[in-house]
Design a protein around this nucleic acid. Sequence first.
DNA 1: CCCCTTATTGAGAATGTTTCTCAATAATAT
DNA 2: ATATTATTGAGAAACATTCTCAATAAGGGG
Lengths: 128, 128
Amino acid sequence: MKKRNTIQKQIILDSIKNTKSHPDVNELLKIVKEKDSTIGKSSIYRNLNSMIEDGSVKLILTNSNSKRYDGNTSNHNHFVCNKCNKVIDIMKEETIDKKLEKEYNFIIQEKNTTYFGICDNCILKKNI
Amino acid sequence: MKKRNTIQKQIILDSIKNTKSHPDVNELLKIVKEKDSTIGKSSIYRNLNSMIEDGSVKLILTNSNSKRYDGNTSNHNHFVCNKCNKVIDIMKEETIDKKLEKEYNFIIQEKNTTYFGICDNCILKKNI
DNA sequence: CCCCTTATTGAGAATGTTTCTCAATAATAT
DNA sequence: ATATTATTGAGAAACATTCTCAATAAGGGG
């Protein structure tokens, strides 16, 4: 007997999968509570963490002090507004250049690529 | 009369510029306190924020709950360990591929690119 | 079906990070 | 030197996230 299916998990996963707004925990809680107002914030944190663990949800890193989540796990990039922290999907095939900047009406100030994985030290320590 | 030069600013900027460890605020505070033990945490936050504002320091986004800072503002990418959150510089010219993975002894699990800038809405609202 | 076990939940406490407040200090222009 | 006022350090306040725990409910075995 391992993981159990609960209504809470279903609603949370369903909610994050069906929004394009890349919500943080408070915003997601609001969406979730519309479907079941009894669901608590702890369950959002708990379940998002395990969904990130198993890869069914992605973490988006912005400049704000709260984490944002993306239910779209397909390989794509993001544009983050330096003023309002809004996150917008940039599909992988698109090439960011002057043309794209014009198309979206953004001002692109910086491109930031980060590789995530396991470092040499953690591999040695079998910290995997 | 606008910005003033202070010993605190000098020590903080000097400290972040002279470490490759991509410290968070607590780690940077420790380094700073070795040079002047009277400098307080508020000054670290205050000055880092303004240094980010004017571009003399960069923010690094990891999976942990605290922000990390990089005094190296040259165009380069990062590798972040998913276990210990250590951040390692990846120079721009290098191409991430199997060869590189072997060279560094990493396991690369994900590549994440984010474009930062000003979104259409904020441009309209002249929120710049 | 109905137990039994135990994973999961919601509420709130605890912890951690970042910002805010304010009197004291010190950097600059005069 | 003095006056003005940006900056400071300490702690309070505001958030974000994790932890704790009694109550609930999922799902396997009878």
